[in-house]
């Protein structure tokens, strides 16, 4: 009895991703479609790999070049909005040095002389016209320039920030995987039209695994302030959220996955240790 139940449960679960696969084989002529079975270094447990289309950039209309599997630990993690938020706060703060500055009563010009005698006038006693009680006087506990807001977010919050954001992007269809970044022309109108026709939202972040992107896409994105290129090591939560759509090349998607999985499965006591200023 229990075995039947388990089988039934399994079939219910498996039916969700397999619909996608059926659709894939029926809609696209199969001879051009590349479907790769991945060799997992850390095989997904209890969850199926996420399947995504490999798309192209060399034509305006979308062509599906293949199916690609993404690891659920990286691309199907719990979308922890709070962790994403803390990552954004961290990224805003660690580089922020606030230069707001106020003068204390010692720094405000003048105010050395006792304004009026201590006694005999019937007025309140005062020793300086720059006392904080005076108009134009100094400020108590005001901001002082050069105040750094640097702090380090715990290592695993940074890691889970990335997985949460990637998973949220993928779940909301805002993450697309392309084969490579080759486009036929260096005209930015081509790219703008492509983005418009594929409904990728105005702002797009394109991530490749190398520092050197092909010339055409570099020139084409040069004029478009809302379309940006980034190498894979620059990937961060803030940029992903700032852009509507995230485009990963196939190799970039793999590299992100490998790196995060490796860090999740290795000894990270060094990275978890307290941040020291001389460690970098």
């Amino acid at each position: 009895m229990t075995s039947i139940l388990i089988k039934a449960l399994k079939s219910i679960y498996i039916s969700v991703p397999s619909q996608n696969a059926k659709f894939a084989t029926s809609a696209i002529c199969s001879n051009t479609l590349s479907i790769t079975n991945k060799e997992w270094k850390y095989p997904p447990t209890f969850t199926k790999p996420r399947e995504v289309w490999i798309e192209n950039l060399d034509t305006i209309e979308e062509k599906k070049l293949g199916l690609f599997e993404l690891h659920p630990t990286v691309y199907g993690a719990t979308p922890r909005i709070d962790i994403i938020h803390r990552n954004v706060i961290w990224q805003r703060k660690y580089r922020w040095v606030s230069w707001a500055h106020t003068k204390t009563r010692a720094e405000v010009r003048g105010g050395g002389r006792k304004p009026w005698p201590q006694k005999g006038l019937g007025k309140a006693r005062h020793g300086s016209i720059r006392s904080p009680l005076f108009r134009g006087g100094g400020v108590i506990h005001g901001p002082r320039a050069g105040n750094t807001h640097f702090f380090m977010l715990p290592f695993h919050l940074r890691l889970y920030g990335l997985t949460s954001t990637l998973s949220a992007k993928l779940a909301q269809d805002d993450l697309h995987v392309v084969k490579d970044l080759d486009i036929p022309s260096d005209n930015s109108e081509y790219l703008a039209e492509l983005i418009l026709s594929r409904n990728w939202g105005p702002s797009v972040l394109i991530v490749d695994d190398t520092d050197y992107a092909p010339r055409n896409i570099t020139v084409a994105t040069g004029n478009l302030p809302h379309v940006n290129l980034m190498p894979v090591y620059g990937l961060n939560v803030y940029s992903m959220l700032k852009h509507d759509t995230l485009i990963l090349t196939q190799s970039a998607a793999e590299k992100i996955e490998d790196r995060i999985l490796q860090l999740l499965h290795s000894d990270t006591r060094k990275q978890q240790a307290k941040f020291k200023l001389d460690q970098v």
Partner: peptide, 24 residues
């Protein structure tokens, strides 16, 4: 697993997660 799946499915019908609508 169920919670993760549920959260991701919910996200599909929610506005895009962006800098403007996240909170702690």
């Amino acid at each position: 697993r169920q919670i993760t799946e549920k959260a991701l499915t919910m996200l599909r019908s929610l506005p895009r997660v962006s800098l403007g609508n996240i909170r702690d």
